[in-house]
Amino acid sequence: MIKYTNQIKKRRTSKVLAKDSIITDSGLKDATFDNFEVDNDEQKQALHIAKQSAYQYLNKDNQFNTLLTGAPGRGKSHLALSMLKAVNNTSEKPQSCLFVSVDELFRRIKDSFNYSDNKYSEGNMVRLLTNVDLLVLDDLGSEASMNRDKSASDFVQKILFGILNARSRTIITTNLNAMELEAMYNPKLVSRMEKGVQGHLIKFTERTKDKRLVDF
């Protein structure tokens, strides 16, 4: 009975990261703090803040968001997933951790519209993302990239607001700066994104080069 109870507890906590995450970049799955490449002071500082934030997230009473910004290919998603793994693997009290690509999340929700029993229905996903102990929303803003006016749709904003309004521990990665976030999203939603980010902001500038670029 105890063994069965422990298995149920793991499915609801430490196994959530592997079971329910939506990771579209297969090369990201092996990301850890140990294999994050540090070539300059900016990356060194980013790694330090990420490790410090992950350590603080080990205590569920610590409630704050972490925001990672900067151009694509700088390592934002790598650090975000590394933070989740650190918490998932070392938290004394098991925590449910989840990594979700925002663009793919909304693709799957929209694909579920014609199937009432689809696991990716709006209701199911909002409940899952709301209730996990620590959540990564990866590449926020990509879901609105196809809109002509570059603003997020009312549908997207309603779901994101419902999730973030109910949360107090979320890690967000985005290619957008503060002005672009404010132009794309409702001020109330931006306010929820920025809850407690003081001291937990990781910003990559032009000093850090795109890690995905290949010389040819």
Rank of each mutant, 00 (worst) to 15 (best):
T174E: 02
L98F: 08
N165R: 10
D117P: 04
F155P: 12
K119S: 12
F113R: 11
C97R: 06
M179V: 03
S121W: 09
M125E: 07
R108C: 00
T173S: 11
A166W: 00
K119H: 11
F106R: 09
R167S: 11
R127T: 10
D133M: 01
N147D: 02
M146R: 15
I163C: 04
I159Q: 00
I172H: 01
N177C: 07
N89Y: 12
E104L: 10
A152R: 01
Y115E: 12
Q157A: 08
T90Q: 12
E104M: 14
K119N: 04
A152S: 06
F155D: 14
F161N: 01
L134F: 15
N165L: 02
I109Y: 06
R169K: 15
L128T: 09
F99P: 10
I109M: 15
N165V: 06
K158W: 12
T174V: 09
L140Y: 08
K119M: 06
P94D: 13
T173N: 07
M146N: 08
Y120K: 09
S145G: 00
V102Y: 05
K119F: 10
D139A: 06
D111M: 14
V102N: 11
V102S: 13
S96I: 09
L140S: 05
V132M: 08
L129R: 02
M146A: 15
F113M: 14
D111F: 12
A166K: 01
L137D: 04
N165T: 00
R148L: 09
V132W: 00
F161S: 02
G141L: 03
N88F: 06
N88Y: 07
S116T: 14
Q157C: 11
S91G: 13
T170I: 09
K158P: 03
L164T: 01
D111Y: 10
M125Y: 10
Y120T: 10
S153R: 10
R127I: 05
P94E: 14
D138C: 10
E122H: 06
R107H: 08
N177M: 13
K150S: 04
E122S: 11
L135V: 07
K158R: 15
C97I: 10
N114Q: 14
F155Y: 15
K93Q: 13
F113N: 14
S145P: 00
E122L: 15
N131S: 10
L128R: 12
S116R: 13
E104F: 10
D111C: 11
F99D: 10
V100Y: 01
T170E: 05
S142W: 03
S101R: 14
G162L: 00
R169M: 05
K158M: 13
T170A: 03
T90I: 08
R127A: 06
D111T: 11
K158F: 14
A166L: 00
E122P: 04
T170G: 03
G141N: 08
A166E: 04
S142A: 13
A178W: 07
M146C: 14
V132L: 04
N175L: 11
S91H: 08
E143G: 09
D149T: 03
R108G: 04
A178T: 11
D154N: 06
L98A: 02
L164W: 00
L134K: 12
